[in-house]
């Protein structure tokens, strides 16, 4: 017997690789949900470690709201070319055109809520039985209670009261036809762990994570990137700011923070001393105290 010898990043990495390989071993048609954010970029890096020199046993799936930061799409396409894996894109615009969802109106309109429908349709169309995602338990209270293998019914619903016990490192991926499992390999990572890992592994990131100049407006006390996707009126004043983004989602619901963190070391210092949690910069979680719980029950990621 000896003391723990694995450094925490090695341990988290080994756990995530183990979970990814369990997905490969247990499911017939898995997919990796890729948002272009740092967490899903980390997942892709972990998948390289899990499966190279072989190919990924799953495609990457991007649910595209059409309201993306341009930098995210550039990054996505470059990354796909670099790793040579398959990408499937599900477009929220298609769901709108097909009449399955209706675009929100008004000042706070966002396509964030609509993407759940596109996600479920994409899962159904390709008959995915497992979807790997980059959610972490430290992000939010509802996520803190979710399993690593989280079973969803055919409506994509999460039922917090009927979760399967998850014992040791044994993940039960058995499901009925029509159900699917959301798998979260970096459940046990914190935001800072992800950044420290990205630094250690030298993983390239979209440029919007680093400080840059951008036209912004202030809404509900938060800085939003001015864009054609944001419904603006005369009350909105555009200001040029030095900002960066802590999470990368739809342009209409992802807030920027003022920052002069140009390098990854600066970002890590900034987060370590920050007093605001990461999801504090997500308008979608601010709606109510139980916002995430309700959305997850409805099939959200």
């Amino acid at each position: 017997m000896s003391k723990y010898r694995l450094d925490y990043l090695d341990e988290l990495e080994a756990e995530a690789i183990y979970i990814l390989r369990e997905v490969a071993g247990q499911f017939e048609k898995p997919a990796l949900l890729f948002s272009g954010g740092k967490d899903s970029i980390t997942l892709v890096h972990l998948a390289l470690k899990a499966f190279r020199p072989g190919k990924f046993p799953f495609p990457l799936v991007h649910i595209d709201t059409g309201h993306n930061f341009e930098e995210t799409i550039t990054y996505r396409d470059e990354m796909i070319a670099r790793i040579g894996e398959k990408l499937i894109v599900g477009n929220v615009q298609d769901s709108i055109d097909e009449g399955k969802v209706i675009e929100q109106k008004g000042k706070n309109a966002s396509r964030n809520a609509l993407q759940t429908v596109t996600l479920l349709d994409t899962i159904a169309k390709h008959q995915f039985d497992a979807c790997i995602g980059g959610a972490r338990r430290d992000e939010e209270k509802a996520r803190a209670k979710e399993r690593i293998f989280s079973v969803r019914d055919e409506f994509g619903q999460w039922d917090p009261k009927r979760q399967r016990p998850e014992l040791w490192d044994i993940y039960n991926g058995k499901i009925h036809k029509g159900e699917n499992v959301r798998v979260f390999p970096i459940s046990n990572w914190t935001e800072l762990d992800v950044w420290n890992y990205i630094r250690r592994e030298n993983i390239p990131l979209p440029t919007i994570y680093f400080a840059h100049q951008r036209d912004c407006i202030t809404r509900n006390g938060q800085l939003m990137a001015a864009s054609p996707f944001l419904n603006m009126d005369d009350d909105d004043v555009i200001e040029r700011k030095n900002v960066r983004f802590r999470t990368v989602g739809d342009m209409t619901c992802t807030a920027a923070v003022e920052s002069y963190a140009f390098e990854i070391d600066d970002i890590i210092d900034e987060i370590a001393s920050s007093k605001i949690s990461e999801r504090g910069a997500r308008m979608d979680d601010k709606v109510s105290e139980a916002a995430m719980e309700e959305r997850k029950k409805g099939g959200y990621f």
Partner: peptide, 10 residues
């Protein structure tokens, strides 16, 4: 409390 919740700190 109906289930196991995970909390992280360092």
């Amino acid at each position: 409390t109906i289930d196991v919740a995970y909390k992280y700190f360092e």
